[in-house]
Simulated scan of single mutants.
Amino acid sequence: MDDLWPVAGLRVVSGDLELRYLDDDRLLALARLAQDGVHAPDAMPFTVPWTQGTPTEVARSVLTYQWGARAAVAPERWKLELAVLRDGEVLGTQALMASDFPVIRTAETGSWLGRRHQGQGVGTRMRLMILHLLFEGFGGRYATTSAFDDNGPSNGVTRRIGYAENGIDLIDRLGGLATSRRYLLDRATWDARPADLRPEVRLHGVEAAREQLGL
């Protein structure tokens, strides 16, 4: 359906990793992956605690959110949810979200990996891939992201890439007070990143996607 819904044809490729549109087969694999666990039982890295509940409830949360995100693609507001693939296996999802992007040129990233795929360096690589799409493919000016103070891996990836801290949010997390840190990455910092953060990335289907996003 790439001719009618061009973002479905987006591909971001780097080495053995690929970011692809969440079609029905990939979405089902993603939901089943979430059933197997996304984080430790005593942790909650998400502002919306969608990982709570039975495995079936967690999988259904993934399906309902992603079905809504599919329709939320228009020049004034969009959510691009891409499957993270390695050798065809779904490892998690990498998202890029924006409002009024044709004018503001700023987008927020968010992601998660199945627990069994964590700690392998995938998180850094998939973030670099989505940032490449944002800056090189879509002409972005700024990237934003956020993470709770106690989410060490996410904060570590963000700081290593070169984001600057950009304030905090105080959030009611499961009935307790939690601090979420906001981060900002500008185009100049992205262009100046060191060589070890410059993997080869290939983009496919960008021009058609740009037309759908009003770019």
Score class of each variant (00 low, 15 high):
residue 43 A to D: 15
residue 103 V to N: 07
residue 118 Q to H: 08
residue 122 V to R: 02
residue 47 T to H: 08
residue 47 T to V: 13
residue 40 A to T: 09
residue 56 T to A: 15
residue 121 G to K: 12
residue 125 R to H: 10
residue 50 W to F: 11
residue 136 E to G: 00
residue 60 R to I: 06
residue 61 S to P: 08
residue 101 F to D: 02
residue 119 G to N: 09
residue 115 R to T: 08
residue 59 A to D: 11
residue 96 L to P: 04
residue 77 R to Q: 12
residue 62 V to K: 02
residue 43 A to N: 13
residue 108 E to F: 10
residue 75 P to R: 01
residue 137 G to F: 03
residue 66 Q to C: 14
residue 122 V to E: 05
residue 135 F to H: 04
residue 123 G to T: 05
residue 109 T to A: 06
residue 104 I to P: 03
residue 42 D to Y: 09
residue 80 L to T: 08
residue 84 V to A: 04
residue 113 L to H: 03
residue 57 E to P: 10
residue 72 A to F: 10
residue 83 A to E: 11
residue 128 L to M: 05
residue 129 M to Q: 03
residue 84 V to Q: 01
residue 128 L to W: 00
residue 44 M to P: 00
residue 106 T to C: 11
residue 131 L to I: 04
residue 40 A to M: 14
residue 131 L to G: 07
residue 108 E to I: 06
residue 136 E to R: 09
residue 49 P to M: 09
residue 61 S to H: 15
residue 83 A to L: 12
residue 135 F to G: 06
residue 93 T to D: 11
residue 54 T to H: 13
residue 129 M to G: 02
residue 58 V to D: 08
residue 110 G to H: 07
residue 127 R to D: 00
residue 131 L to C: 03
residue 63 L to V: 15
residue 64 T to F: 10
residue 87 D to V: 10
residue 138 F to E: 06
residue 54 T to G: 12
residue 49 P to R: 08
residue 65 Y to M: 13
residue 127 R to Q: 08
residue 45 P to I: 01
residue 38 V to G: 00
residue 111 S to H: 08
residue 67 W to G: 07
residue 118 Q to G: 06
residue 131 L to S: 08
residue 69 A to E: 14
residue 53 G to I: 10
residue 122 V to T: 14
residue 63 L to A: 03
residue 123 G to L: 05
residue 118 Q to I: 01
residue 104 I to W: 12
residue 97 M to T: 14
residue 44 M to F: 01
residue 44 M to T: 03
residue 135 F to A: 03
residue 116 R to E: 14
residue 58 V to S: 09
residue 79 K to P: 00
residue 126 M to Q: 08
residue 120 Q to H: 13
residue 74 A to S: 15
residue 85 L to G: 05
residue 90 V to R: 01
residue 95 A to W: 02
residue 100 D to R: 09
residue 114 G to Q: 01
residue 62 V to Y: 02
residue 55 P to I: 09
residue 77 R to M: 03
residue 96 L to M: 10
residue 50 W to R: 02
residue 67 W to M: 12
residue 79 K to R: 15
residue 135 F to S: 00
residue 109 T to C: 07
residue 53 G to W: 12
residue 133 L to A: 05
residue 101 F to Q: 00
residue 93 T to Y: 02
residue 80 L to H: 05
residue 62 V to N: 01
residue 123 G to N: 10
residue 69 A to V: 13
residue 70 R to H: 15
residue 55 P to T: 09
residue 86 R to I: 04
residue 59 A to H: 04
residue 38 V to S: 07
residue 136 E to S: 12
residue 116 R to N: 10
residue 128 L to V: 04
residue 112 W to C: 03
residue 55 P to G: 07
residue 126 M to S: 07
residue 130 I to G: 05
residue 87 D to P: 12
residue 124 T to E: 09
residue 42 D to R: 10
residue 91 L to K: 04
residue 122 V to K: 04
residue 125 R to M: 11
residue 121 G to H: 14
residue 65 Y to G: 02
residue 127 R to H: 05
residue 98 A to T: 07
residue 130 I to E: 00
